[in-house]
Write a protein that binds this DNA or RNA. Structure first.
Lengths: 123, 123
DNA sequence: TATATACGTAACCATTTGATTACACAAATA
DNA sequence: TATTTGTGTAATCAAATGGTTACGTATATA
């Protein structure tokens, strides 16, 4: 069986920010991880990192520009909420390849099985 | 029946390149897409892009540095083969959030259901 | 043996990225 | 009203990124 994989990226609507690029930065992945458990203000997020608050603020901006984070104002505070469903493009992209590597592992497994049988016959 | 699972990333083969960063570039994602269907030489890969051959060569190098692509020499040609299982760290990372957004969608769905029932009662 | 081919790599360059500090401003508080 | 707090943004900078051309080198071919 052959699995054909189409280059879906070409079909995508141009976003201001690319979600693949957004999650490329480890700090931004950590921010996503933090927000998975709870909504946090920008300052609360920043407290978890060694970099400056404006640096964190900019990371959050990038995440919000590709929809992974939405911000709602509450007084002078801004609460960051994760929108995990906007990671879907990445999940879909990866999913094609999961099929591919599972096929690979299956065929490797059956290769090992054959090898075992062969060795048994050789004994 | 034995299932062999290779979590190569966990075996602490220190990778120079981060796989998240590797797939951040659209050209590299396209290269992965090309190689999913077939093994290709460096030049054959390069033919599919508008950028120069050395530029493609460098992208392939980056992909090979994080294990997504392996290269085997055959005469003067170098065949690039995809190792999709090395995308697993990304798949695992995404998977946590899939659970999160499915919960979100579920609760939204049940919210809609309640709304529908309510509207029916209001009629 | 001379030439063509398939690369990798070095030198270079423009742009992007990710950080900093300084500042502006609205909202809360004293 | 004066001050503190939470935040965005501008100016600036070093490093990383991604492209180019030029070149070296091993392998195939004439």
């Amino acid at each position: 069986m052959v699995t054909y994989i189409f280059v879906t990226n070409r079909l995508h609507i141009r976003m201001r920010r690319d979600v693949f690029q957004a999650i490329a930065d480890p700090v931004r992945r950590d921010i996503i991880g933090l927000l998975a458990n709870q909504e946090l203000t920008v300052n609360s997020v920043a407290e978890n990192f060694d970099i400056s608050r404006p640096a964190v603020s900019n990371h959050i901006k990038i995440l919000s520009e590709c929809g992974i984070v939405v911000i709602h104002k509450k007084g002078r505070e801004r609460y960051c909420q994760i929108q995990p469903q906007n990671l879907l493009p990445v999940a879909e992209w990866i999913e094609q390849y999961r099929k591919l590597w599972e096929e690979k592992l299956d065929s490797f497994e059956s290769y090992l099985m054959k090898l075992q049988t062969k060795n048994k016959n050789d004994e």
